[in-house]
C-alpha cells in the first residue's frame, strides 16, 4: 500500500505543487548518483529558500530530459498527468453531464486518484494498484491542509504561478504526516 506521488494543478492549468515518495518504482526516474528512496519534494522554482537533499537529484533530471531509456523529467511528468486528467474529465462531462467527474483510473502499474474542487483546483494522487479509492483523502488534504495553510496564509499569493506560496513549511509537514498515516 504505497503512495508514489501527489500533484496539485490550479485553475490556470499549471502545476503548482509536486511531491514524490518512493522513487524506486518502475516508471519513476532513479539515479545512481545521489540519495534514492528518500522523500524529497520537487523544487519547482529551485530557489535557495527551499533546500532539500534530493533536489539536486531531480534537477539533474530536469536538465537532461531525453535520458536514455525514455525517462522523463518531473516537469514533463506533471504535464502528461495534467493532460490525461484534463481530457478524461472533459470526456466524462460530455458523456454524462456537467454533474459527473471521473474519480480514478488504474493501470497495470499504478492507480491514479483525482479530486477537483468547484474552484477548478485539481488534486491528483498516484498509488499502487491495491489501494482503495482515496478521493476522500484528497478531499481531506484540500480541507485540512491546503485551505488552512495555503489559502489562509496571508503571505501566500492568491495565484500560485510556478508554485510559489504553496510549498509552505506547515503545508509540507502536514502533508507528510498525513500521507504517512495513510500508508500505515
Amino acid at each position: 500500500m504505497t503512495i508514489y506521488s501527489f500533484y496539485i494543478f490550479d485553475r490556470h492549468c499549471e502545476c503548482i505543487y509536486i511531491k514524490q515518495w518512493h522513487q524506486q518504482d518502475k516508471f519513476r526516474p532513479t539515479s545512481s548518483a545521489g540519495p534514492s528512496g528518500t522523500d524529497s519534494p520537487a523544487s519547482l522554482t529551485g530557489d535557495g529558500k527551499r533546500s532539500s537533499a534530493g533536489s539536486t537529484l531531480l534537477r539533474s533530471n530536469d536538465t537532461n530530459p531525453s535520458r536514455p531509456g525514455g525517462r522523463l523529467s518531473v516537469q514533463d511528468d506533471a504535464k502528461l498527468i495534467f493532460g490525461v486528467v484534463f481530457s478524461l474529465r472533459n470526456m466524462v462531462r460530455k458523456l454524462s453531464g456537467p454533474e459527473d467527474s471521473f474519480i480514478s483510473y488504474r493501470t497495470g502499474a499504478y492507480k491514479l486518484h483525482y479530486y477537483e474542487t468547484p474552484t477548478n483546483l485539481k488534486f491528483v494522487l498516484l498509488t499502487d494498484v491495491k489501494m482503495n479509492n482515496l478521493r476522500v483523502v484528497l478531499h481531506q488534504i484540500y480541507v485540512n491542509l491546503y485551505v488552512e495553510f495555503v489559502v489562509k496564509n496571508p503571505l501566500s499569493p492568491v495565484e500560485h504561478h510556478g508554485g510559489e506560496g504553496v510549498a509552505v513549511e506547515l503545508f509540507e509537514m502536514g502533508l507528510d504526516g498525513f500521507i504517512r498515516t495513510i500508508q500505515d
Binding site: 456537467p98 454533474e99 474542487t117 468547484p118 474552484t119 483546483l121 484540500y142 480541507v143 491546503y146 485551505v147 489559502v151 489562509k152 492568491v158
Partner: peptide, 19 residues
C-alpha cells in the same frame, strides 16, 4: 474582492458544497 478570492475556498471546505 481579495477577501472573496480566499473566502470561497474556506466556504467550500466547510460546507462540502459542489457546484
Amino acid at each position: 474582492y481579495n477577501i472573496g478570492l480566499r473566502l470561497i475556498e474556506d466556504f467550500l471546505a466547510k460546507t462540502n458544497m459542489g457546484k
